[in-house]
Design a protein around this nucleic acid. Sequence first.
DNA 1: TATTATACTGTATATTTTTACAGTATATTA
DNA 2: TAATATACTGTAAAAATATACAGTATAATA
Lengths: 205, 205
Amino acid sequence: MKELTKQQTKVLTCVEVYLNKTGFPPTRAEICKELGFKSPNAAEMHLRALEKKGYISIQSGSSRGISIVKRQQSFMGNSDQMPVIGLVAAGSPTLAEENIEKRISCDPNMFKDSFDYFLKVKGLSMIDAGIHEDDLVAIKKTTDVKNGDLVVVRLEDEVTLKYFKKDNHSLELIPANKDFATIKVDLREQDAFVEGKSVGLIRTH
Amino acid sequence: MKELTKQQTKVLTCVEVYLNKTGFPPTRAEICKELGFKSPNAAEMHLRALEKKGYISIQSGSSRGISIVKRQQSFMGNSDQMPVIGLVAAGSPTLAEENIEKRISCDPNMFKDSFDYFLKVKGLSMIDAGIHEDDLVAIKKTTDVKNGDLVVVRLEDEVTLKYFKKDNHSLELIPANKDFATIKVDLREQDAFVEGKSVGLIRTH
DNA sequence: TATTATACTGTATATTTTTACAGTATATTA
DNA sequence: TAATATACTGTAAAAATATACAGTATAATA
């Protein structure tokens, strides 16, 4: 998550406080009044920046259409709107806004380890690990992975979920389905970027 | 607190659901669309009644200026401490305190359907459905189940998680593992009590 | 039996609100 | 050095929204 500037933090706090006090988000004008700005465009621009950085989402065309994605302070409890990543566009960063399919309200600490986003599973390559198509795998962004971990790896422009096995320069990405082949990468020849590892899974029946 | 009429309850629920989904309250027109009213005044009048009875407060002159004073149910973007049911003691009600292994902080509405508790899976009888030992299956308490649903059924003093199939007096509880046999019950001879059905699953890696 | 509450449709309007556009200025990055 | 991000003022118009008013109809209450 990108860092916020001082003013952006002020605006986000203002929205949170207003929401906490009234139960609904403020208008641009109300933010201005609260923070001493003289133009509604000042608030507008800060809100746009906050959206771009993933802290809020703005429902275009709706009055007070601000929802908080990631709270700074937790007023109520610890529930964030965790992003669900569907198909990742080639070359784009996994967490880019255009890859976010929806958001689910849940506790980032509901699993043993914290996590950053859900990855929606495509295909059947992990079926023998009880991971089905459309399951949501909770991913913690980290490069600190051990052999045997279930990891998200980017190869060229493809993102894949497999078991991790590394031995010197040889990386193996192992599926859990006998119909799929292990992906073998020689790290001297090809890059592989570990995006994170799975800390849990949720499935809707 | 005064009692609500059927329609007022509907409107209040509508506001709560909208708020839970978007993070801000609905407009009169949006309530109408949701509930099938054709005039914004229909929503207006219900909101006035809800305010008069103390369930909400309305900020006059503000768009979406509805705040909920008294919630009907706890929807929340906030998390509840959902109970995890481990081994169920023979004869005791499933949700009895002594059966609660721990509690997990999460949103009761994180799946498509709401749920009441997590059941910790024992054994391998559902492995081919991608349900492993120690997975937590989210159970909604209900007796309204259809053939093919994944249900929690109590037979005598045993609680089991299986696929449901009922045909007249014949009840079949079908596992997802070829090494396990389908449980067949003649309802004229033996009682079977449907405790609920699965709406989702979570697993910690 | 008159009154009040519930439960709406339908229309209209004043107000609220978003949002685009035109500027100004500074700091940081490429 | 040019481009981009931040950080605003000021104005205006289009769109969203609240809300008043005029009705109709039914059920409950005094």
